[in-house]
Structure formats: structure tokens, C-alpha cells
């Protein structure tokens, strides 16, 4: 059971870390200064959340594991993040849509996780929730602003949906370790938050004048370590320093 729990914690950590890393690519490239700062602030929150999860996983793993060895020294197949978080930033609209889809998911997940039986996971969820709620409100407003904005912004949002929607199915497909943790009472059953996620997504899309795609073939695998091509490039950048100069410190 312990290994399943560790895998579940790593899955939550990897989602936050990889999305934080992706968002941080906007640093210095945002469309306006305020939104550049917004993206890096959200990254900081996500990386902070990832650190809490990694520290907890490391304490269960023992044998010299630390938050740093987990982030910097695991291989691609050992990362358990969803495919959605590793996708290209694309344009501003695509980044915002990805943020909205994930923030919506994290908000529901952390809300539920607060009352589950693992006290440390519940505490991390409680701590992260206020930050995620802020991200959700901000990204929802941007999806609406762009979807209901100019003809060009609307078309770009349609393209973003076309690119990203196929990765949303995985959010609600439990991995084997997750199912085991759900039975044990430590993980959130994804079936219990799916309806609410769809409802909220539908609400925001409808206000944005954007369609919710139907009958789309969904790509999965990330949670089991089978990633898209993007993942290798992310890790190459994220892990380069520690791989090239082992144990280098600031």
C-alpha cells in the first residue's frame, strides 16, 4: 500500500511541477508586464505545492530521497503527471485554457482531498486550495475574455480547445495506484468530481461563447509514465544542471 500512496503523491507533485515549469517559460515573454507577473506568480505557487508533495513523498521513501532527487533525478518514465500539463504553451490563449482546465480540476480535487484520511495530504490540499482558487478565478476570466473577445481571440481559443481537449479525459481516468488509494481512503475518487468539473467547464465555455467538444478520442498514459514527445524536452531543461553537475547548489 505504501508504494501506491507514494505513487499517488508523486502524481500530484508532478502535475504541479511540470505545469509550473511550463508556465515559467512565459517569464519575460508575457503579452504585458502584469500578465507576465501573473504567470510567474502562478508558477511559484505550483512549484511550492509540488515541493510540499515531494517532501512528503521523500519522507515516506527514505533511503536518501529528497524533494530535489525526486524532481531532478527521475527519468521520464518515472514521472506520473497528466499529459495535459506537459503540452506546449502555444499562444497566450492556449496557456490560459490549459491553466483553466487544470485549476478547475485541482480546485475540486484539493477540496475533496482535505477530508481524506491521510492527514499530511489533507494539509497540503488545504494549504494549496486558496492559491488554486485564485488561479481558477483569474484563468476563468481570461477564457471568457478571449472567447468572447475579438474574432481573432475567439478563433485562437477554438484552436486551443482543439489542441488540448483530447488530454482532458485522462484527468478522470484513475491509474492503478490511484484506485488502490481510493479504496484505502487516501485518494479522491475521480468519479465524484467529474460532473462538477464538466459543469464548471461548460459554464465558463458557455459564457465565453465556446463549444464543449463531444465524442473526442482521448489520449492517456501520462499518469502511468507514458508521456508525449514534449516531456523529454521539459526534463532536459529542468534537469540539465543536476545531470551535468551532480549536487550543484546555489
Amino acid at each position: 500500500m505504501k508504494q501506491e500512496l507514494i505513487n499517488y503523491i508523486l502524481h500530484l507533485a508532478d502535475n504541479a511541477l511540470i505545469l509550473g515549469q511550463r508556465n515559467a517559460e512565459w517569464c519575460g515573454h508575457g503579452p504585458v508586464l502584469e500578465q507576465d507577473i501573473a504567470m510567474t506568480n502562478i508558477s511559484l505557487d505550483l512549484i511550492g505545492q509540488a515541493r510540499n508533495f515531494y517532501q512528503y513523498a521523500a519522507s515516506l521513501l527514505g533511503e536518501g530521497a529528497t524533494e530535489d532527487t525526486l524532481a531532478y533525478l527521475r527519468t521520464e518514465r518515472e514521472f506520473r503527471n497528466c499529459l495535459l500539463v506537459e503540452q506546449h504553451n502555444g499562444d497566450w490563449g492556449q496557456t490560459l485554457l490549459r491553466q483553466f482546465l487544470i485549476s478547475n480540476f485541482q480546485q475540486l480535487l484539493y477540496t475533496a482531498l482535505q477530508t481524506h484520511k491521510d492527514r499530511q495530504l489533507a494539509a497540503i490540499a488545504e494549504k494549496s486550495l486558496k492559491e488554486v482558487t485564485y488561479h481558477l478565478r483569474w484563468s476563468s476570466e481570461w477564457v471568457i475574455r478571449l472567447g468572447d473577445g475579438t474574432r481573432e481571440s475567439h478563433e485562437r481559443m477554438l484552436k486551443a480547445i482543439d489542441t488540448l481537449w483530447r488530454y482532458t479525459g485522462e484527468l478522470f481516468e484513475p491509474a492503478a495506484y490511484e484506485t488502490a488509494c481510493v479504496q484505502d481512503g487516501t485518494a479522491v475518487s475521480l468519479a465524484t468530481i467529474k460532473d462538477e468539473w464538466q459543469h464548471k467547464t461548460g459554464e465558463v465555455f458557455s459564457e465565453a461563447g465556446l463549444p464543449v467538444p463531444e465524442n473526442i478520442f482521448m489520449l492517456t498514459g501520462g499518469k502511468m509514465g507514458k508521456h508525449t514527445e514534449q516531456m523529454g524536452y521539459i526534463l532536459a531543461e529542468l534537469q540539465y544542471l543536476q545531470r551535468a553537475y551532480p549536487n550543484a547548489q546555489w
Binding site: 508558477s43 511559484l44 505557487d45 512549484i47 511550492g48 505545492q49 494549496s128
Partner: peptide
């Protein structure tokens, strides 16, 4: 207790 999770 931390203010924000990522606060350096």
C-alpha cells in the same frame, strides 16, 4: 506555518 506555499 508558511504564508504561500512557494514563498521563498
Amino acid at each position: 506555518t508558511p504564508t504561500y506555499t512557494g514563498c521563498p
